[in-house]
Structures are given as C-alpha cells and as structure tokens.
Design a protein around this nucleic acid. Sequence first.
DNA 1: CTGAAAGCGCTTACAG
DNA 2: CTGAAAGCGCTTACAG
Lengths: 346, 346
Amino acid sequence: MTETTPQRRPRHKRPPTIHDVAAHAGVSRGTVSRVLQGGHNVSPASQEAVNAAIRKLGYVVNRAARSLVTQRAGSVAFLLSETQDRFFADPNFTTLLRGCTQALAEHDIPLVLITAGTEAERRRITPFLSGHHVDGVLLISSHRGSPMVEHLRRAELPFVCCGKPLGQRGKVSYVAADDHEGAKDMVRYMLESGRRRVATIAGPQDSPGGVERLAGYREVLAEHGLAPDDRLVAIGDYSWASGESCMHELLTRAPDLDAVFVASDLMAGGALAAIERTGRSVPGDIAVGGFDDSPVASTARPPLTTMRQPWDRISETMVRQLLAQIDGEGPATVILPTELVVRESS
Amino acid sequence: MTETTPQRRPRHKRPPTIHDVAAHAGVSRGTVSRVLQGGHNVSPASQEAVNAAIRKLGYVVNRAARSLVTQRAGSVAFLLSETQDRFFADPNFTTLLRGCTQALAEHDIPLVLITAGTEAERRRITPFLSGHHVDGVLLISSHRGSPMVEHLRRAELPFVCCGKPLGQRGKVSYVAADDHEGAKDMVRYMLESGRRRVATIAGPQDSPGGVERLAGYREVLAEHGLAPDDRLVAIGDYSWASGESCMHELLTRAPDLDAVFVASDLMAGGALAAIERTGRSVPGDIAVGGFDDSPVASTARPPLTTMRQPWDRISETMVRQLLAQIDGEGPATVILPTELVVRESS
DNA sequence: CTGAAAGCGCTTACAG
DNA sequence: CTGAAAGCGCTTACAG
C-alpha cells in the first residue's frame, strides 16, 4: 500500500486490521487469518507472534469483512410470529428469550430480535430473511399454520421452532416440553390426592399446548374410569382474563367440581380470582393446578402447584439444534420432560 | 469478469448481486448503487430500469458488503446492564424492549439483544462493542455507576441511557420519565382524597427512580405542612417480595397509616398481599398507589391506582436520540411526563 | 447523469 | 508451514 494514497479516515483513528497485526508480527495476512481460524497449519512461533500482536494492538475482527467472504452473517434471529402484545404479556416467552440469549452468548453469536406479528411486519422482514442477514432463526409461534414456516423454507434459512408447529407438512425441527405427559402427571396427582370432579381450562385449540394438555387430561380421566363430561372443560387463550372467565363458566356449569387443571399459570391466576369471588377456598374446596411454573406461580395467593416447563433446556436445545442445522445437519425433534412442582394450591 | 474463472458456488444458487441487476438493467454497478442510495443523480429512465431489474431478480442488498465500505454495522444493541434475573422479572424492561424493537423496525434497523449483568459477560462483549459490531447502544441499567458507561465511552460508541445514570461525570444522553413530578402527583392525589398518614415504599437509593420518587413524596408532605416521619418510609428493591416485607414493616412501625405510595407496581402487589394478611381493606383502610402502570396493575386485587410511565414515548425517544447521535449529533436529555391512572386501590 | 476503478477487511485455495 | 493473490459485494470519489 503506497502511503501517497490518502486514507479516507486518518489511519490512527481506524481500528487495527489484520494488515496491522501482520506487520507487527512479521508475518503475512494469510497467517494472521489462519491463527484467527484456530491456528491450524501455523508454527507455534508464528502463532505466538500473532497473538502477541493482537493483544498489543487490541485487534478485533471486522465481522462485516468476514461475513462477506464466508457468506455467513454470524448472527441468529429470535423471531416472534405473534402479535407483540401477546408475546410480551406472556412470561414464558420472556423466559425463553432470556435462555436463548444466554445460550447464544456462549457461542459468541449475537441474537437479533425480530417481531412478525402482523402481515405488514412480515412483509418488512422478508428481504432481511431472504437476504440471509442472519444464518438461522429461532421461531417462536404458537399458532396453527404460521405463515413464517413457509417463508423460511423458501428463503432456505435453517430454523427451529419452539413447540410443535401445527398444520405443517414436511419435516420441521422443533423442541417442546412434553405437554401430554405433563398434563397427565398433574391430573393424576389431583386424582390421587382424592379429588373426584376434576375440571380443566385448556389453552387455544390451535396451539400444541392447548391440544396436548387437554388430551392428557382426558386420558387420565378415562384411565381412572371417569366418564368424560363436557361441562368440566373450558377453552381459554392463555391470558389471565380468559382464566377468570373460564373459571366462572365452569363454576356455573358444574358447581360441584373439586379441582381444576389449568393449562397455564397466567390463566390459573385468573381462575383463583374467580374462585375467590364465589367465596370458595383453595385448595380446601377446589384444588388448582397450573402449568409453566412461571413467576406468577409463586406470587399467586395461594402459591400455585404447577408443572414446570424446562425452559433452560428448551432454549439450550433449540440453539444447539439450530447451530447444527446451520452446519448442514438435518432436522430433528426433541421432547423434554416437565416436572410437578407442589406448592399450596393443590 | 472472465467466465473462465470458476465460481465458488454455482451462480444459480447464489443470490443476485448489483452486478446482476446492472446487467439486467443495462447500466453500470455504480448506477445501481446510486439508485439504492436514494436515486440522486440518476436519470428517471435508469432509475426505472434498475428498479424493474431489482424486482425481477428479487435483489436484496448484501449488508455485510455495504457495512464493509460504509464502516457502519447497520444495527443497534439493546444492552442490559443488569443481572438477567432482575431484568426479565421486571415487566417494565420487557415493555421497553418491545417499544425499542418496534421503533427500530420502523427504521429498518435490527436490534441486537445483549446482556452484561456480570463481569464475565462484560468481558465477553467488550470486543463486540469496541469492534463496532453495532453502531450504537440503548443502555438499560438502573444502578449507580454502571461500568458500561465508561466502556462505551472508551469504545467511542454512541449510546443513550434509559433513566438518568447516577454517579456519572460528563455528559450522558438519557431519556427518563419525570419521576419527581410523578411521585408528587400521586401523593397529592392521596392527600386531596382525604388521607392523612401517607407512607411510602421507595425504590433502591442507587437508582434514579428510587431517589426521585422518594424526594417527590417528601416535598408534597412538606408542602402540606406535614412533618417528616421516618417510620413512614421503607426502602425496597422493586421486587414483589420486597414490597411485601416493606409493607409489613411499615404496618408494624406505623399501624395508623392510611395510605401508601409504592414506587413500583410489582412492590405494590406485594404490599397488597401484606395488607390483606392483616385483615385491613384496600382502599377502605389503606389507600395504595403504585408506579409504572405495568400489566400487574390491572390484574392486582383491587386493581391498582398508579402513575403510568410513558414507555412508548420513552422507547421512541431513545431510538430517535440514538440515531441522531450516530449521525453526529451531540448528547441530550429528555424528561417525559407521567400520568395518574385511577383504578380502585386509591 | 454515468462508467471505470479503487478500496473496505477479511478468507482461502494455490503453489511452494 | 507460509506468502502472494484473487475475490466476497458493495460504495464513492473521479473524470467525463
């Protein structure tokens, strides 16, 4: 490089490049790059010299330059295919976001947060995705037939879903808690502690948790020789308010119920409020079991007995799966067990 | 480009570049780039041809290549200088994250989520920041003397804080709600509705909200000729549990109190539980006022009267300020008014 | 208004 | 094990 060519910015203001490191270490830029890539085929002496120069100069790789040649963005998206309201109100999503951020940080991969709850938003992010501005996507969506799955396939972008994506054909990677077994464990626990009229507030029937947890509930009742009774079943939308109104409904239809399995802690919170208003006690008159073990479970009055979802393992596994897929591996499904957490409500 | 040189990947599998667009439109790559930059100094005819080619080919700009030459990352970080637990438990942070994501999306700028709650995490992200892998930082931290401020300054990275950063010298951009006036409005409201023994549960005294809201409380009491009384003041840490224990403490020290201004809704939730346990009623015996208008405010029993923080405006303003700084503008301070939301607890 | 050309900072065959 | 060189896909003075 001839020093007669003026730099765009004065050199001393620009961060050091491999060129500077190479000059300092007395090697070529290629060698510096090899050290950066893990030091294969580099003599210990060169390696040493390069590392010293890197420390000395405070060199940090320019990700844009690297991306340009490797054709990899070096980042991953956390994509919310939900209306923002819905997402940010649900403590589970927050827990998941936290877990994924953490898991990715361990791989030094930045997480890009993207929302795509509306058609307009989806249009806006399409170029971003199909331009491969991220290497892969952690897809968070709880609704049947999310349009994002098709988008991502077309963009040939690796992705893994949180929870089984309903209404999709073909192989889709996903990681999920064992909703079915979890529900069974909870309802069994209630029956075994002497309850006889167990109702349920299920989640939306276009979400996997909504369907699976309800199925588990029904199975255990049948196992115990109890006849199915539609008066004992209400369908909510995972919100606090829906838990409240569903509980009200159940109590009207089946005033003799002595337990209720609620498919989310948030709805269980609403159910508790509805029960309290009728003057009944929990767990004295009615046992209440939640699902999630979200923060509201322990602050609820009384504290909720609930099924813990293994969020840490879910997020770690999602990240691991995604990175594997980015490296060319095929899709996979992982189901993780839930755990009964006994507090006071049941 | 001689076609004898083999491509690394077959051309048909690679996304189109400006080269392809240029060929299609019958212009040079420079012209294509000019159209991409807004179309200045480009004839309408060329403009038209280029746009048609872009649509036809489904061209999407390669951000890495652009970054490399413009020396801009094209993304912004949302940096949590808090332990993750703390952050993700607080609904305010979530609301803020949501607002910032939205505001940035409108500028087509990806948000990179980064946590730096521990020293180890801070070390890990330092190269990322000093390598300018983002153009600026939205800094979320509520503690005095956050080390991140110094880090960011040294990295010469534009940043704007959420809330006044305590214990910092020199100019720092920040956007905050008017904690002081907000607290005064709430306490005035309580006094004007006939309360005489107004207590407070303040936030941590190393956070701006903790300090300012307590100061506002004291001022209004003085305004009304009421003598300061330390038995009426407790200091919490914004958590539900601390609200509960602080309330218990206040009730022990000053059983005759008839109102309490709590510096966060989460703490107010805990306070309600503590009050309920003593058999007192809200607002009959004790009026409770919160701060934030977070989701818990409306689900609390009874629903909380609170001061609404203008989160949407805060996030929009933070983003606007940050983008301005990235474009070379100087630092600024913005204080936004809060609003009294009357529900049932006071 | 336009094209040719340099250059952003890396990685990676290639030839030794 | 190492260096020289090509190339990743853009932007932007520069000269017309």
